[in-house]
Design a protein around this nucleic acid. Structure first.
Lengths: 217, 217
DNA sequence: CGTTAGATTGAGGGGATTCAAAATTGGTGG
DNA sequence: CCACCAATTTTGAATCCCCTCAATCTAACG
């Protein structure tokens, strides 16, 4: 959710003045379900996983957000509707909702940018539902790799290889699979020479066209 | 998406003047993926299924929308991002996007209502992802029944029993299941006396508390 | 009454999960 | 720098859930 999208510089400066910058370490929560509604956040560096939980411990990651995106915007009954967890060290600005809303009411272009951002997120969510509802495990993992490749690489990413940043457990929670199934799916993509798996959580995409066709992207 | 949410009467009249009312028969498409972007629609009567498709024919219904909701709002590359199909006879007003945007730019409260509606839809989408990614077949069907009970009943619905309005195939496309699995799940809910199944697509909820707990609502 | 589309039921197979064990990784301190 | 430990990942085997294919049943319509 890139709420502050295409705004001219002066406006952006004015808007950023509303928010206080903070830092979170890897693994820390920016907000959690049920917390009384506080500020929302615009990420300036790092990656955040937004997720929801079930009483019995089942967990679903509903989105991955990176620099430029806004998170913690959705509420339910005056509480955060989802949970935000830092997958890396994260820098973000906290915005007071009331101030932001007032500001948006006086700045139609900001309101329009907010609408466009939410509409884009909603379209993405529809695609994610297609992945969860219709794709098989290898297809889901392929889709995931293409997705994070675009997400991370567009925002000053590293070199050849791609850092997953997530454990198998977190990938599983994102794709609706178990850690073992994720591991086996990655193995299949590796043995078919679509990707190479390096040290740690490094993945190199060897055949992006094939990966995209498997992942239905 | 109830974009025109809480507006005072005068505004609403002015806004509705922008849109032309039309009617669609059951089964007809209001818009389809890849069609060049046209108007969006505010439903005044009936129910619409919004879905997306895969090349190989797999289909995912991403939302059900009823009177008061807006549909056909999401675009991708100047084309409709999803497909809208009438589950019943549908009445809706078609809105010209450009006119609507201009109108919203001059009416901050309309812009705010649009934002609130999109945010609500996005929260719903996150819950749907939880259903698709984590719930088992009976849980998904239970969740579905609670959901449409709320959706239909809030808008002038019938009496005791609930009309599904959808075939098993459409329910399957919504829940990421096959028609046989949907049928068996309904059967299990029936034999455990949580619901009763009448003629046609009529379902009566006998134990809503239990249904809600099964569906994790 | 017959036809046809949709729904149910059954049998069998396949993909993902579960449980368990082995292997690898990363971090820590000697 | 290496050894050791904890955590994560990979691999294997058995089970379960859902899918596929097929047959039967039901309901709606002419």
């Amino acid at each position: 959710m890139n709420i502050c999208g295409p705004l001219e510089r002066a406006r952006l400066v004015q808007l950023l003045a509303l928010g206080g910058a903070r830092h979170w370490k890897k693994g820390e929560l920016l907000f959690r379900v049920g917390d009384p509604m506080g500020p929302f956040f615009k990420i300036t560096a790092g990656v955040v996983a937004v997720s929801t939980l079930l009483d019995d411990g089942r967990r679903q990651v509903v989105a991955l957000r990176a620099a430029g995106d806004c998170i913690g915007y959705l509420e339910e009954n005056g509480q955060y509707a989802f949970e935000g967890r830092a997958l890396t060290g994260v820098d973000a600005c906290a915005f007071d909702r009331r101030l932001f809303d007032k500001f948006a009411a006086r700045n139609p272009d900001l309101a329009a940018a907010t609408t466009a951002t939410l509409a884009s997120a909603l379209r993405q969510a529809g695609q994610a539902m297609l992945v969860l509802g219709q794709l098989k495990s290898v297809e889901r993992v392929a889709h995931f790799l293409v997705e994070i490749d675009a997400l991370y690489r567009n925002r000053g990413a590293c070199g050849e290889s791609l850092s997953l940043l997530m454990s198998r457990a977190e990938i599983g929670d994102y794709l609706g699979l178990t850690i073992e199934t994720v591991s086996r799916a990655l193995g299949k993509l590796k043995t078919t020479d679509v990707i190479a798996i390096g040290q740690r959580d490094q993945v190199t995409i060897l055949d992006k066209a094939k990966l995209r066709s498997i992942g239905k992207v």
